[in-house]
């Protein structure tokens, strides 16, 4: 198992290098001159050139790229902001916990509502509660989350004044963005959970369990749910990525000082080191979450675990089996 984790961690390296290359290339060829943005159009060509020299922007593409990678790998240095010369790494460290918290809260809301509703709906297929769940699922996957967020603000922040409209100064400030993002995502989780559970309900081993005289409670919890979990866990992993992306919009709407706002501001101000750093960090955390999801698979499903434990043991098994049969 540990060997597998190590292997997966290693295989993340080329992916992350690929991400860095894509994002670096994209921003390198972006039209618009950072020097003019930072120093103003009126600044002398000399001053601009000096500024470019300072940030190494006069070097060739490959020199710049390899320097960028080298600094990250050797010093954990993502460069300095064009705007204020501040270290990007420290800005990222400042902002990341907020975004991460928001994404986690979102996932919690999405999992709680989506998975529970999905299970209940599947267990009462074609009942009124199933109908409600399906309507919720359809609306949820179709509603743009930023609009839903605005509606929530309109109702809970402006009309009822239960929650603050914007800012980020405590738990109360997380509620609306987490609900806005979480509920829209709960919808798709609900749909996946429902169909996954429905699929498992029809399996032969569930009938076997009934024929054993097992109680319905244990059948649902143990035989159905544990088997239905795999697609659900996959979806939960994806949902974390969506939550990270969605957090960028929520931060914009609710004026939350997170990575997303840092990045959008960076884009508007042509502050590329910030944008690159934010994308890299988000991709890294997304990859780590997906790795964790893969680990969970192995815990849930012995068939997947067997794949991890190398082919040699498996071969021994089949041979032994043949001898016996």
């Amino acid at each position: 198992m540990w060997r597998y984790i190590a292997k997966r961690l290693l295989s993340m390296i080329p992916v992350l290098i690929g991400v860095s290359f894509i994002i670096f290339t994209l921003l390198y060829f972006t039209p618009g001159d950072p020097a003019s943005m930072v120093l103003g159009e009126q600044a002398s060509e000399e001053a601009k050139n000096e500024w470019r020299e300072e940030y190494g922007l006069n070097d060739s593409f490959w020199t710049q790229y390899f320097r960028y990678i080298k600094d990250i790998v050797t010093k954990g240095d993502f460069g300095d902001s064009y705007r204020n010369g501040r270290s990007v790494t420290s800005s990222l460290i400042d902002r990341f916990p907020t975004t991460f918290l928001l994404a986690v809260c979102t996932c919690v809301v999405a999992m709680l509502v989506g998975v529970v509703l999905g299970i209940v709906a599947a267990n009462h297929q074609n009942s009124w509660i199933d109908a409600i769940a399906r309507v919720f699922g359809m609306i949820g996957i179709s509603m743009p989350m930023f609009w839903f967020a605005l509606l929530l603000i309109m109702f809970f922040a402006v009309k009822l004044q239960w929650f603050p409209v914007s800012g980020f100064y405590g738990p109360r400030y997380v509620v609306l963005p987490a609900i806005a993002l979480g509920l829209t995502h709960a919808a798709s989780l609900m749909r996946i959970t429902r169909s996954s559970v429905l699929d498992c309900i029809r399996q032969d081993y569930v009938r076997t369990a009934r024929a054993k005289g097992q109680t319905e409670g244990v059948i649902t919890r143990h035989h159905i749910l544990r088997n239905a979990l795999i697609p659900i866990v996959t979806a939960a992993g994806t949902s974390f990525g969506i939550a990270l992306g969605g957090a960028m919009i929520m931060e914009q709407i609710f004026a939350i000082p997170g990575l997303g706002r840092l990045m959008v501001d960076g884009i508007n101000q042509r502050d590329y080191p910030i944008v690159r750093g934010a994308v890299m960090l988000l991709a890294l955390s997304f990859s780590l979450v997906n790795l964790a999801v893969d680990m969970l698979y192995a815990y849930i499903d012995p068939r997947i675990k067997a794949q991890y434990q190398g082919a040699s043991r498996k071969k021994q098994k089949t041979e032994a089996e043949e001898v016996q049969a």
């Binding site: 032969d204 076997t208 035989h223 544990r226 849930i300």
Partner: peptide, 13 residues
Amino acid sequence: MIFQDPMTALNPI
């Protein structure tokens, strides 16, 4: 009861 298809009658996990 012994079920028809042993491939699917057992819980895989």
